[in-house]
Design a protein around this nucleic acid. Structure first.
Lengths: 224, 224
DNA sequence: ATCAAAATAATAGTATTACTATCGTTAAAT
DNA sequence: ATTTAACGATAGTAATACTATTATTTTGAT
């Protein structure tokens, strides 16, 4: 793997924070404890006062880093999508055969998340838990269109387009590459959600089943 | 169509309301105006005080019908899913060929909603709008597991299983019928959402494209 | 080491929300 | 006509999502 790709970092739209939390120890603690708390109690019960207390600081300090709770959530989700995009690029860039590359891509995107030691203060497993359980909340506010204009969802959109490109590489004639891509990425989260809360609505309980289901679905759908 | 099927009604878990809104004029107004208001302003800006005022009544009266806003939203969504289930049954019960039945089912489930005059005080188009934009909010609260135990999502689950049965009827050997079914039902909403807010993430702008996309996807996926 | 500037902590306060409780009035049922 | 149920109006509460202000600590330049 070349150095360029090995050294890539997750970069997040600065509009999502007032002061970059990555730039200080305190900021990193906010992110790190924020992930832990939200994955445990959910966003509605989470608030900046509790986070401040938890990190031995207080509410007003958190507000100096993040404008509000919703942006904090979008920040965390962006981090997740950015991290996933990085992994996607790392896992697929060396594969030249389009079909094989697509399979690896889907594998990366739909597998249950395992701990990644590259980022000390971020627990990717808890973060995945958040995205599965709260992922659509930042989207499903009335401000979504403004936030989209502000570029807060760029990483997510880029990820969808990356997968769509790989789909097109296998079958350029398939007319719904982007819809299929967004269906897979969103659908993967949804199936994890069902597995946890509505097990009767999914068969994907095992570790490899998610990947099998989606690879089979995509492969058959775009088959010429 | 036989009388039994023509006369079916949407029935909703009584745990979702304190007093059946269908039983009084005032209750129907709550539902009817509630749909209009939420589809316009979104759930977060909507509240029972505003609804009370809008129907020329007041907050406390609404609270006599519905315990809280979240249950009200689940009530409305249940109505939508129940209505869709009815339409699904009506549209497919007479079709004996499994493949053709499945196609009609997907068509019914993924088509843009058009007005249905059978229910005077309910605007199905606005309701679809709500489900598309807020659908996961009732799910994505921490109480989802308790609410599931209370049976609040039975209609939705039944709908998923109905479609899964039709998938199995076409190919009994396909092992992920339920996951595929839930993916289609959820995915259809998601694609409508993308069309409205993230058009770059979907190709399904036309009227027939949703149906084409999902029928093609399901047919190819379960093809032997 | 000193001192100014920046960052953080502590506290108080505001507007809104999601309810609950109470009570008087109106409408419906017998 | 009278009892009962439904409704309307008002007040109140606890929590939340912030904002504003000021005090204290940390940092960084000299």
């Amino acid at each position: 793997m070349d150095a360029l790709i090995r050294n890539m970092e997750v970069s997040i739209n600065p509009g999502l924070y007032l002061k970059d939390p990555q730039s200080t120890r305190l900021g990193k603690r906010m992110v790190s404890y924020g992930i832990a708390m939200i994955s445990e109690m959910g966003v509605e019960k989470f608030n900046f006062r509790k986070l401040g207390e938890e990190i031995g600081s207080n509410e007003s300090s958190v507000y100096r880093y993040f404008e509000n709770k919703n942006k904090f959530l979008i920040y965390l989700c962006s981090w997740y999508w950015g991290w996933l995009e990085l992994r996607l690029v790392q896992e697929t860039h060396a594969i030249s055969d389009p079909s094989s590359r697509l399979e690896h891509a889907i594998d990366t995107l739909t597998q249950p998340v395992v701990p990644d030691s590259s980022y000390e203060h971020i627990d990717e497993v808890a973060l995945h838990q958040i995205v599965v359980n709260e992922y659509s909340k930042p989207f499903l506010t009335r401000e979504v269109d403004q936030q989209n204009r502000d570029g807060y969802f760029e990483i997510y959109k880029r990820l969808v387009h990356r997968l769509a490109d790989m789909i097109r590489a296998v079958n350029p004639g398939y007319p719904y590459a982007v819809s299929l891509s967004s269906s897979v990425i969103e659908g993967s989260l949804h199936q994890f959600f069902l597995e946890q809360h509505f097990p009767s609505l999914t068969e994907l309980e095992g570790v490899r089943n998610h990947t099998r289901f989606f690879i089979h679905l995509v492969t058959n759908t775009i088959r010429k």
